[in-house]
Design a protein around this nucleic acid. Sequence first.
DNA 1: ATGGTAGAGCATCTA
Length: 271
Amino acid sequence: MRFSLTTWNINSVRLRIDLVAKFLEEMQPDVLCLQETKCPDDAFPLKRFKQLGYDHVVLNGQKGYHGVAIVSKLPFESSDIRVFCNNLDSRHISVSFGEKAGMAVPLIVHDFYVPAGGDVPDPDVNAKFAHKLSFLDEMKTCEPLHPRGDARHILVGDLNVAPHENDVWSHKQMLKIVSHTPIECEKLLAVQSEGNWIDVARERIPLSEKIYTWWSYRAADWAASNRGRRLDHIWVSSALKDSIRDFTVTSDARGWERPSDHVPVTTVLEL
DNA sequence: ATGGTAGAGCATCTA
């Protein structure tokens, strides 16, 4: 079966529900993983998603900040929320698909919102940066993020790190900027290698080519300056490496009316 | 070297 999945840091799902609808109507992914919903669970716009054909929803929201959600055309078997850094921030949710979704072999999807880490890249003076580094360390040792053998897992989200030189507009000018410091890049790549994850973007697009999924709101003209970063990621377990059929960054979405600073990132797998 | 924007919810935090 053809299976498509999108990850998108929406920066308020309530404010941008019309943009989400526009995207879902055009792209029709089977599953959409959202971050920064900024929405308590009882205020989540469930009805709009149901109208769009996304009947199955799991939520880990909180008031004002953070928040993740997975909406799906396919029914789930189960869902789970994990706590990182002993902190109640809503930064993770996962689901499993199985027979209810027509899958004989289970598929697990993890949706993450890694802490941004503040401005100063020094854990001794910036507690937010220390939190980010600890969060990445915990992801590395988190047993459910170590798919083995034939296990079919997908890990997506706003991981808030652009790990490779061409994941940022200027490697040299970004070395001391949070999201591209060597310590963060090392730790994110350690999470990836510890779980034998395949970076779908770099499986499809060589390391020599620039890829961005985020452009700052603080640019006068985001497209003209094009100072982007690849903060949003789709990883698959090694068992799914040969199932990858497509990878798309919907950069157009950065130019939509009142956009998120992140754009949707989509993969298609043949399961 | 600096300051630049956006959202939630209503002062200030987070990004």
